[in-house]
């Protein structure tokens, strides 16, 4: 079974059409061409689907980097450590 961190990385690969080695912890909204404001919306939908969570509008703007996305998902009950 795929671990949550892998699912999270795959969400970036699928939604933003990135190569595996392009997904890193420094990834942030607006830094790469793929993660622009429109790519951001597809990423949100993908993450919601993968983790079966609902990200509301306030958090959509808060989710602006790879790291902040993980923090947000942790708050929504996604466990990246003890799974």
């Amino acid at each position: 079974m795929m671990r949550n961190i892998e699912k999270y990385r795959n969400a970036f690969i699928n939604a933003l059409d990135l190569e595996e080695d392009e997904v890193c912890e420094d990834l942030a909204l607006g830094v790469t061409r793929e993660w622009d404001s429109i790519g951001h919306m597809t990423l949100i939908s993908e993450v919601e689907d993968v983790f079966d969570v609902s990200i509301d509008s306030e958090w959509i703007t808060e989710f602006n980097s790879y790291q902040s996305g993980m923090e947000l998902l942790k708050r929504l009950g996604v466990d990246f450590i003890n799974e």
């Binding site: 429109i38 919306m41 597809t42 949100i44 939908s45 993908e46 919601e48 689907d49 509008s57 959509i60």
Partner: peptide, 23 residues
């Protein structure tokens, strides 16, 4: 408009064309 129209319209949309329509 972003919070109350655009974001709800984008819910579950994964294709760029669908996001374009929402825009």
């Amino acid at each position: 408009l972003r919070d109350y129209i655009f974001f709800p319209l984008c819910k579950g949309k994964k294709k760029r064309s669908e996001i374009y329509l929402a825009i």
